[in-house]
Simulated scan of single mutants.
Amino acid sequence: MPAARGHFRFPHNRRMKKSPALLALLLAAAAFAQEPQMNLPRVKLTAGMHVIDAQVAATNEQRMTGLMHRQEMPQHEGMLFVFDYPSQQCFWMKNTLLPLAVAFVADDGTIVNIEEMKPQSLDSHCSMKPVRYVLEMNKGWFAKKGIAAGARLGGPVFR
């Protein structure tokens, strides 16, 4: 509820002065909001002979948080962003601590383009055409595996 001159307004017009306990509770809630997402559903994807264990970010909240606040990510893991319909997708790295590579992927699993992204940057990285899927991996993962635009990912999400 809105604050009014150093007091928090509660139902029935009761007011309560800010207390250290309440302040601690609010700070803990803010810290919790900065926790990385670790328990999203997962899907197995393939890129040639390579298997990817991808967390699936399918809701607005999951997509907005993405890989923010992560300190590390195993090399065989990534995050697959799933959108309701194909459109131009643009990603940035605000509050993202890991350097990442992003693949913009068509409905059939074909990689449209791949971009390398710097941590904590507001630089925008966009798909070259409308896509419904975006796969983030550790920086350099696609290049190290010889995977480029035009390659096809496999998995149950692709038609």
Rank of each mutant, 00 (worst) to 15 (best):
M1W: 11
M1P: 14
P2E: 11
P2G: 11
P2K: 11
A3P: 03
A3D: 13
R5P: 01
G6A: 04
G6S: 05
F8L: 15
F10T: 12
P11E: 13
H12F: 15
R14A: 11
R14M: 09
R15Q: 13
K17G: 10
K18L: 15
S19Q: 08
A21E: 09
A21M: 07
L25V: 14
L25Y: 15
L26P: 03
L26E: 11
A30I: 12
A30R: 14
F32H: 13
A33N: 14
A33T: 13
A33Q: 12
Q34N: 13
P36E: 02
P36Q: 03
P36G: 04
M38L: 15
M38E: 12
N39I: 04
N39Q: 12
L40D: 00
P41F: 00
R42S: 02
R42Q: 08
R42W: 03
V43C: 01
K44C: 00
T46S: 10
G48S: 13
V51R: 14
V51Y: 10
D53A: 05
D53V: 06
A54I: 04
V56G: 00
V56N: 00
A58Q: 12
N60F: 14
E61F: 10
E61I: 12
Q62N: 11
Q62C: 07
R63F: 02
M64K: 15
M64T: 14
M68W: 08
H69S: 10
R70L: 11
R70W: 07
R70K: 13
R70M: 09
Q71K: 14
E72W: 07
P74Q: 01
P74N: 01
Q75K: 13
E77R: 12
E77Y: 09
G78P: 08
L80P: 06
F81R: 03
F81T: 04
D84S: 15
P86W: 00
S87Q: 12
S87N: 10
Q88Y: 05
Q89M: 02
F91V: 01
M93F: 01
M93S: 00
K94M: 13
K94P: 10
T96F: 00
L97E: 05
L98W: 01
P99D: 10
L100Q: 00
A101Y: 02
V102K: 03
A103R: 08
A103C: 11
F104G: 04
F104C: 06
V105T: 08
D107K: 13
D108I: 07
D108P: 06
G109F: 04
T110R: 15
I111W: 02
N113V: 02
K118C: 05
K118R: 14
P119Y: 04
Q120M: 09
Q120S: 04
Q120L: 09
S121Q: 11
L122M: 12
D123P: 03
S124V: 14
C126K: 00
S127C: 03
M128L: 10
K129S: 05
K129Y: 00
P130Q: 02
P130S: 04
P130I: 01
V131K: 04
V131Y: 03
R132W: 05
R132G: 08
V134M: 06
V134D: 03
N138L: 09
N138W: 07
A143P: 06
K144Q: 15
K144P: 07
K144R: 15
K145F: 06
K145T: 07
K145C: 07
G146Y: 11
I147A: 03
I147R: 03
I147G: 02
G150F: 06
A151G: 08
R152P: 06
L153M: 11
L153S: 09
G155M: 05
P156Q: 12
V157Y: 11
F158P: 02
